[in-house]
């Protein structure tokens, strides 16, 4: 676990890079998104100094909500030290000078790509998701003009056609990530490409969850304690991935595991994808042993 204290931000930039006008515009979109859980609010996404598809939506959301007292954690694939997470954390250290941490519990704002931390979040935290394609109906209906209507009219039959087809062709629902959810019984939402393993964590979550899609110019949100239900059939209920293995480092049998190839002869091991969760457990195990 590593925490770096706040420092002086680069004077060449406004706090957290974006100018205040832009932040206001994004905050307005955020408020609207929170007021209509699961609804995709169009917003005037700005060009950021990192490429589209690399977290520009999440970065803009984070930049708009950060205050100098915040402690920021950035993860990619559950890990704090993957290159893109490092790069985004560095960006905010430079432009906002805020404290950063890898400790899930200490963080007040957590920006993530593809995972939700294993440790339960609290009311004092905000989770910001980076979203590539916000539209859950996109691959069934490529037209924005049509999908907007489908959401407006709650015309979601097509979504179940996809699940039906999964079962009829594979015997079970073959969607493993970006698994669609229904929010408060109204909007169907794409939880971003997190594995379906993380879907249950979204339901009734204490923390505020914000989703930013920069290239597609959409923001959506789940206020704390929102009902989030993964779509399924009565006789084919939603279920999450399970591993027969345990984490080789901390022994966890209830976390999302990454497979690591150790040699070219089929050797492999499984380790927690959430590096903070795993290292805390390792320390706990050591202490217990001593």
């Amino acid at each position: 676990m590593s925490t770096e204290p706040a420092s002086v931000p680069d004077p060449g930039y406004n706090f957290a890079y974006l100018n205040e006008q832009t932040k206001k515009m994004i905050r307005r979109a955020l408020l609207k998104a929170i007021a209509i859980p699961g609804y995709q609010v169009p917003f005037a996404s700005r060009e950021m100094p990192m490429p589209y598809g690399w977290g520009t939506g999440g970065v803009q959301v984070t930049a708009s909500i950060l205050t100098p007292d915040d402690v920021l954690k950035v993860i990619d694939q559950g890990a704090d030290d993957t290159t893109n997470a490092v790069s985004i954390r560095k960006f905010f250290r430079r432009t906002a000078g805020i404290a950063t941490t890898s400790d899930t519990e200490t963080a007040t704002v957590i920006q993530t790509r593809h995972r939700i931390p294993e440790e339960p979040l609290s009311e004092s935290q905000i989770l910001v998701f980076q979203v590539p394609i916000p539209e859950p109906l996109r691959f069934l209906e490529p037209r924005e003009t049509e999908t907007r209507k489908m959401h407006a009219y709650e015309d979601y039959g097509l979504m179940h056609v996809k699940l039906y087809e999964d079962i009829s062709q594979n015997g079970h629902i073959a969607t493993t990530y970006a698994y669609p959810v229904r929010v408060e019984g109204r909007y169907v939402m794409d939880p971003s490409p997190t594995p379906k393993f993380d879907n249950p964590k979204m339901d009734n979550c204490e923390a505020l969850q914000l989703f930013g899609a920069g290239r597609e110019k959409r923001i959506y949100a789940l206020p704390p304690y929102t009902r989030v239900v993964s779509l399924d059939f009565e006789d084919h209920p939603f279920e999450i991935q399970k591993w027969t293995e345990k984490c080789s480092l901390c022994g966890a049998d209830d976390s999302f595991l990454d497979e690591v190839i150790t040699d070219d002869k089929g050797g492999r091991m499984f380790v927690c994808s959430d590096t903070d969760f795993c290292s805390k457990r390792q320390i706990g195990r050591q202490e217990a042993a001593e």
């Binding site: 995972r115 493993t176 990530y177 490409p193 999302f256 994808s273």
Partner: peptide
């Protein structure tokens, strides 16, 4: 990296 989705 897309480890997580690929793992799924």
């Amino acid at each position: 990296p897309h480890y997580v989705d690929f793992q799924s």
